[in-house]
Nucleic acid binder design. Structure first.
Lengths: 294, 294
DNA sequence: CACACTTACGATATTCGTAAGGATT
DNA sequence: AATCCTTACGAATATCGTAAGTGTG
C-alpha cells in the first residue's frame, strides 16, 4: 500500500471514473486500473463496484476514503515540514552567549540572521561565561559564545576576535582627554568592577596578576551597567571588554586604549565536538563569523 | 517518500547502524544505503551524519523520527482495519426487521451469525413493516426484512418464506382440540387483534376483505404480546403470523391451521437495487437465506 | 455503435543484490 | 587487520503506456 496507490484510490473515489481520474493523476487509464487492482488485492477485497458503466464505492471503499485522505495529508505534512527545515524555512535554534556579547555585537547579527531566515525561531540564553560552556556541554544549546575555554574536552572553539580590556573613565576626569593609558595609571585610580563570581572579574584578576600588577577594588557590584553608571558619576574608573565600546560612548563614559601589557582574551563560538549542528545552527555560525571577522 | 523508505529510516535510526538495520529489513546493506540516500535527496538534506564509524541522527533526522513512527503506525492501522473489514473480522451491520420476525425466527439466526463473525457489530431496528421499507430506501440500513413491498421502485426483494395466518385460541376453548379451522369459524368468535396503524391489521383486513369474509373486532390493542395474553385468558381468538407459532405454544395459547382461503404473504429480504452490500451484510443475507429455507 | 473499464504485452524506471572501494578504529 | 558505509554495475521487480478485448447503454 503506497501513497501513490492511495492517491489513485482517492482520485477515483472523488470523480467515480477511472478515465477522468487517470488524467488528474497524469497516468494512463489502464495503469490506474492496475494500481487500484493491486491495492484491492493487498487489502483483501474490492473498493469499487464496477459495472463497466458505473463506478461506485463499496462500503469498504467508503470506509477507506476518509482514512486515505487523512493519511495522505499526514504524509504530505511531514514531507513539507522536513523540506522546510532543510530549506531553513522553519526551525528552531538555541544559543547561549555571554552578556557582554549579547549587549553589543550580537543584536545586529541577529537582525541579519532573522532577515535571512525569518522562519527560524531563536532562543537566546544570555548567561554567565561559565554557564555558556555548561549549556553547550549538556546539549541544552547548540551554539555558545564565550571566551576560549581552557581544558574543556569535547568542545570545539572557533575564534572570532580578540577582546582586549579597555579603560573607562568619567568624561569629567582629567584622563578623558587621553587616547591611551597604562594599566599602572588606571589602577592607581579608584577602581570599580564586578564581584567575584563573574568571569570578567576572574579574568581581570588572572591577567593582571600574571602581568605582575597590583590593584585594589574600591567598589564592586553585580551588573556591568551599574559599574558604567558609577564611572560616569565620577566615582572611579574601570576596565571592561572592548566589544562594549560602542555602548560605552552612549553611556556617558570615555573609553581609552590600554597600553602594554596587552591584556586580551579570545572570544569565539563553542560547539560540541561530537554533535552535528542543525542547518539553522550552522547558518548562524556562518553569519556570526562573517559579521565579526569583517 | 514511500513507507518502505520510512521503515528503513526508522530501522537505521533505532539501531544507529546500517548493517544491523539491513538485517531486520531483510535487504542488503547497500540497498539500504541507497534507500536512505533517496529519502534524503527527496527531503532536501541529510538525516544521518555518517563518519564511516559512527552513524548519528542529524537534528533534522531527530525531528523526522517521531513523525515517521507515527506515520507508519497510522499506515499500518488503516491497512489492518481495512483487511479486517474484508475478512469480516471487524465491521458494522445495520438491519431493519419487522417485530414478528425479530420475535421469532431472527434470534437464532443472529446467534449463528454472531458465532461465525464475532467482530461484526449488528444494529437491529425492530420497527413496523412500513418503516422497514423506508429505512432501506433512505439507506439508513443495508438490509430489511418485511413483507413483499408492492410497487416500491429501487428495491430488490429476496423471498424467504410464505407467512400464513394461523388462528390462536385459548387452551380452554372448545376449538383447542382441533388442528384446523376455517376463517368463518374463527371470525364468529370474539376477535382480538392489533390497532390500525399496524401492518398486521391492515394486511388482515385487506386479505379478509378480498376473500369476501366479514369480521368484527371485539378488542384491539398495540402490542401483539397483549393480544396473545388476552387470547390465553379466554377473551377471544385471533389470527397471527405463522412464524410466531413456536412462541405461541409457550404463551399458553393453542394455534390452529386456517383452511382456505389461504391468506398468506411473502416475507423476504429487501435491499437497495443500486447499492452494493457490504460483505458483512451479504454474509448476513446468506445466513438468513440458509437458515430460513431449510 | 460508442463509451468505459479490463486484459495483454512490451518498454521504462525503480529497487535490489553482489562485488569493489574508502575510511576509521 | 577488521569493520562499516559508499559506490558501481548487473539483475529482478514493479510500474507505466499502447493496443486489443469485453460488456453495457
Amino acid at each position: 500500500m503506497t501513497p501513490r496507490q492511495l492517491e489513485a484510490f482517492v482520485a477515483v473515489a472523488r470523480v467515480l471514473s477511472f478515465a477522468r481520474a487517470s488524467e488528474s493523476l497524469y497516468m494512463s487509464q489502464p495503469a490506474l486500473s492496475l494500481a487500484i487492482r493491486n491495492l484491492e488485492e493487498e487489502l483483501g477485497g474490492p473498493l469499487f463496484s464496477r459495472t463497466t458503466r458505473h463506478v461506485r464505492l463499496t462500503p469498504e471503499g467508503s470506509a477507506l476514503l476518509p482514512l486515505a485522505v487523512q493519511l495522505l495529508a499526514d504524509f504530505s505534512n511531514v514531507k513539507e515540514r522536513l523540506s522546510q527545515r532543510f530549506k531553513l524555512q522553519k526551525g528552531h535554534l538555541t544559543i547561549a552567549a555571554m552578556p557582554s556579547f549579547c549587549a553589543s555585537v550580537f543584536p545586529p547579527i541577529l537582525a541579519v540572521y532573522r532577515k535571512n531566515y525569518p522562519g527560524i525561531d531563536v532562543s537566546i540564553h544570555d548567561v554567565l561565561n561559565e554557564n555558556v560552556i555548561g549549556m553547550v556541554q549538556e546539549g541544552r544549546v547548540e551554539l555558545g559564545i564565550c571566551f576560549e575555554p581552557i581544558g574543556e574536552r569535547g568542545l570545539f572553539f572557533e575564534p572570532l576576535f580578540e577582546d582586549r580590556f579597555v579603560a573607562i573613565v568619567s568624561r569629567d576626569s582629567r584622563l578623558a582627554s587621553k587616547n591611551a593609558i597604562s594599566w599602572n595609571q588606571l589602577l592607581h585610580q579608584e577602581f570599580i568592577t564586578l564581584q567575584r563570581p563573574s568571569s570578567l572579574r576572574r579574568l581581570l584578576e588572572k591577567l593582571v596578576s600574571e602581568a605582575g600588577i597590583e590593584f585594589q577594588v574600591a567598589f564592586d557590584c553585580h551588573q556591568l551597567a551599574t559599574v558604567v553608571r558609577m564611572v560616569a558619576a565620577g566615582l572611579g574608573v574601570s576596565a571592561v571588554p572592548s566589544m562594549l565600546r560602542d555602548q560605552l560612548e552612549l553611556s556617558g563614559v570615555h573609553s581609552l586604549k590600554l597600553n602594554a601589557p596587552m591584556v586580551s582574551s579570545s572570544v569565539g563560538i563553542i560547539t560540541r565536538r561530537d554533535h552535528q549542528l542543525s542547518i539553522a545552527a550552522s547558518a548562524m555560525q556562518s553569519e556570526i563569523l562573517a559579521l565579526t571577522k569583517a
